[in-house]
Simulated scan of single mutants.
Amino acid sequence: MQTNTKRILAIDFARGLSVVLMILVHTMLVYGDSATRHESALGQVVNILGQGAPMFLVSMGLSFVFSRKQSFKGSLKRGLLILLAGYSMNFLKFIVPTLFFGGLPVPFVEAYGMTYGEPSNMVFFFLLGDILQLAGLTLILMAFIVRFSKSKYVPLVLALFIVLVSSELRGYRPGIVGVDYICDLLWGATYQVYFPVFPWSAFILIGLFFGLWFREKGSDQGFLFKSMLVVGIGLLVAGVLLSFYDFDYHFGDYYHLGPGGSLGLMGLNLIVLWAVNLLTSSVKPNHAFGFLYYCSRNVTSLYITQWVLINWGMSVFGFWEHQELDVLLLMLLFLVLSLGVVYIKSNYGVLFRLQKSARRVSEST
């Protein structure tokens, strides 16, 4: 079993798998027709696999404990940079196609309840809240938590508080321009913000709790994942019972979960992380695992790249137009393209130096 506290293979595996699954899910959501998304076997499988975002969030909270930039200033800087990356991604995803690729598809704009051609559409899309906005804001929150408290129970209590009050706060806006948008980022009820801080930051905070507990126990990975299993089962049972009692209140919809849905999904992903650790501890290193570890190391670049490429691709492949086989091929295409762009980007300096050295050798002969 991996013993280096800076590298927990199960976390790398989960994070890498999460971003790969996101590429497949996003491709289907953008390109699959209604039958493919809601009725086909592919749609059912991908919708289930699409619940991988919480696993990524829990992994993020765990990884925070072992970050080399865990200082208060370093964490604040990381949070702000991720926020900047989120809005830069929105610019590339939405504004660039609008200005240079003939505009976003009409059905895509209308799916958000807007009229095609309105200048305000660009403002809406630029401000759209995604997982990077959530990650940036929560990193800033965690910077303050770690700065002012060493207790592992602070993020745990805060996570449970956020889960319990999310439904009560959801949709509240005071009617003040600018402040309303901040409220949407925190507990919005519309699809301008897909991952509001309430309740989604709770998934990151529960990861922070386990990370702090893991460090407190001398980096005992066996203890960490057994604890995840026990706590995960408890949260899953509580979440299922609450959702069964009042589904509309306790689950709502996937992006705007109530208390029961949040607890259940949190518990399920803790159990999955336990299972992933069992897998990475039992199976010898192989190319498939190595591929996922590579994706984990490049998770932010991959996330941004795949969304930009998928959105740009609408100018070629349309929106909500393709059946199962076409969607499968598009999944493969965008997975390969995303990996290729990230590889070139991360190795550009090396490739440039090799090219320069080769030129010098050719000129000297």
Rank of each mutant, 00 (worst) to 15 (best):
G349F: 03
K93A: 12
K69V: 05
A135T: 10
G267W: 08
L329V: 10
Y194D: 11
Q2H: 11
S262A: 05
G16M: 06
P105M: 09
Y245G: 05
S40P: 15
L309D: 06
V46K: 06
S120E: 15
V336Y: 15
L17M: 13
H256A: 02
F214L: 02
L235D: 00
I145S: 06
L9Q: 07
S357M: 12
S71M: 10
A202W: 01
M28A: 08
L279D: 01
G129C: 11
T280M: 00
S227K: 07
Q51F: 10
F126M: 06
S75M: 11
G207V: 09
V65R: 09
Y191G: 06
F126P: 06
L325A: 06
I233S: 01
S151I: 09
D180Q: 05
Q51W: 14
L42Y: 14
I23C: 15
I82T: 15
P196F: 02
S364F: 09
A85K: 00
F210N: 02
G207Q: 07
F334W: 13
K93E: 15
L265G: 08
M1R: 11
L224T: 06
L332F: 10
P97E: 01
D184L: 13
L137F: 15
F209Y: 01
L132G: 07
T98W: 08
G188A: 03
L185W: 06
Q2E: 15
M22Q: 07
S346K: 14
L273V: 14
Y31H: 08
L339W: 14
